[in-house]
């Protein structure tokens, strides 16, 4: 049983979210401003918080900072602001993930599930030889398996090789040409497009929203990389 707090000043949105997250495993709490959210967070043991940023009384940012003082519960920001700056601000203030309004219900449920799994498995993940991690993304070179939030993802051998190369060097940008040489062991004569197509497919399998990747990032005009850290 997971305790999930939904906090937004729009009742309609809270209700919609409640419908999406209708699940026997979830117990839902609701709050309509930051102060209420803070109150509920103090009185209950929460496993996840979905929180809007722009709210009366106390805004999401402040509430998040207050909650972070005594808890590391996962927080997903719901924001109408799609500016990059706001996302960065939210993430540095202590949010674990963000969803921009208007949101896609599938994305919401997926992100909630992902955060819950990661939070509950925290500590169980033992450092093992040949296992590469990036957030919820896990590549087990021993079993030749790729898992996202603990669930196995089926990849083609080429895709697996590409992902493995990137995960072995987190933060390093590989150009399509380089990737082609490394994976295909051949000189790329106009075959970089193949790499780009594979990466796109890989993103569709690994990421919740391939247009906004969290792990496998596209550095436009340079290449591809796996996000470092987390």
């Amino acid at each position: 049983m997971y305790n999930i707090l939904i906090c937004d000043d729009e009742r309609d949105i809270v209700n919609a979210l409640k419908i999406y997250l209708r699940d026997p495993n979830y117990q839902l709490f609701e709050a309509y401003d930051g102060a209420q959210a803070l109150q509920i967070a103090r009185e209950n043991t929460l496993h996840l918080i979905l929180m809007d940023v722009m709210m009366p009384n106390m805004d999401g940012m402040e509430a998040m900072e207050r909650i972070r003082e005594h808890s590391n519960v996962p927080i997903i920001m719901l924001t109408a602001k799609s500016e990059d700056n706001d996302k960065i601000l939210g993430l540095t203030a202590g949010a674990d993930d963000y969803i921009t309004k208007p949101f896609n219900p599938i994305e919401v449920t997926a992100r909630v599930k992902s955060q819950l799994r990661r939070y509950m498995q925290l500590g169980s993940g033992v450092e093992q030889q040949g296992i590469y991690r990036c957030g919820a993304l896990e590549l087990d070179d021993g079993q030749k398996q790729v898992r996202v939030d603990g669930e196995e993802v089926a990849l083609t051998p080429t895709e697996y090789e590409i992902l493995k190369l990137l995960m072995q060097h987190p933060g390093i940008v590989f150009s399509p040409k380089e990737l082609y040489q490394r994976i295909w062991n051949d000189l790329p004569y106009g075959s970089e497009n193949t790499v780009a197509v594979h990466i796109r497919h890989l993103r569709e399998k690994v990421e919740i929203n391939p247009a906004e990747p969290r792990y496998l990032k596209v550095v436009w005009g340079q290449g591809y990389k796996i996000e470092k850290g987390k």
């Binding site: 150009s175 399509p176 497009n193 594979h198 796109r200």
Partner: peptide, 14 residues
């Protein structure tokens, strides 16, 4: 590198 970007764009849309 515009070449890379163009490659990436093709990959995204192919």
């Amino acid at each position: 590198d515009v070449g890379v970007l163009l490659t990436q764009a093709v990959g995204e849309y192919e």
